[in-house]
Amino acid sequence: MADSGTERIRSMFAAAAEQGRAALLPFMTAGIPDPESSLAMFQAMTAADGFEVGIPYADPLMDGPVIASAGRRAIDLGMTIDAGLELVHQVAATTGKPVIVMTYANPVLQYGIDRFVDAIAAGGAVGMIIADLPVEEAAPFLEGGRRRDVGMALFVAPTTTDERLERIVAAQPAFLYGVARLGVTGEQSELAATASELAQRVRAVTDLPLVLGVGISTPYQAVEAGAVADGVIVGSALVRRVLEAEDAEQAAEALGAAVDELAAAMRGSES
C-alpha cells in the first residue's frame, strides 16, 4: 500500500529540507484557462514540489480579485466539483507529486464531508485546505480527514492570539497554513514582517509543518518566506499569468517559467 497522505506531506517537506530549502507549492485554480487545458497547467509547473489545486467557489471570502475571477471563469466554463476531483486525480497520477485540495466549506458540506474526503483520497490527494474553516468548525472535517488519512490543514494568522494558536495546535491538523499578511490573496511587493513573526510564534509551540501563503508572489518573497517555513504557497501571481495568456500553450509556458524562477531562487538561497 502507498504511503498515507500525512506521511507523504511530511516526506515532501523533509526532501526539500535536505536540500536546505522550503518546499514550493504553487496554487492553481482547477478549470483555467479552460477545463480541458487545466491539467496541462499543472504539468507545466515541473519545478514544483507539490500542488495546491483550487476547486472553484464563486464567493471566495479569502481570495482577492485574481483568484476570485479565476474561480468564476472556471465555473462559467462548466467546472464542477466532480470535474475538479477528476482533475485532482489526473494531476496526482500524471505528475506523481503530492496534491493538496483547496476549497471553501459550502461546496464540501453540500457534497458531504465524508464523500468529499473519500473522493479526494481515492484520487490520490494527500491533503486539504478549507479557507473559511476556523478550528471552531473544523472537527468534522478533521475527523473525516483522519479516517482516510488525508492531511487537513488549519490556518494561523498574524491576528491569531496565543490562546487560539494553542487551540489550533491541540486540534492536531496535519500541517499549518500561515497567513503571511493581513488580507486576502493577492500580489505584494514585499513579504510582510508579520510573516516571520508569525513563523517564530508557531515554531515556539509546535513541530507541525508550516506553510506560508497569501501575498507571496516574487522569488524574493518566496526565498524570505522559505527561510522561516517548511513550505511556500504562491497563488495569485501564477493564476494571473494563466488568465492573461492568449492561449493555453502560452499560459503553460509562462507558468513553467515563473515556477522555474521561484524554484531556482529558493534553491539558490542556501548556496
Binding site: P134, F155, A157, T159, T161, V179, L182, G183
Partner: peptide, 22 residues
Amino acid sequence: ERGRFGEYGGRFAPETLLSALD
C-alpha cells in the same frame, strides 16, 4: 458557546477574523 441557534449559525470565516470576532 459556538454561536449556534440549534444547528444554525457558527463562525465559518477566515482565521484572520476570528480574534476580532472573539
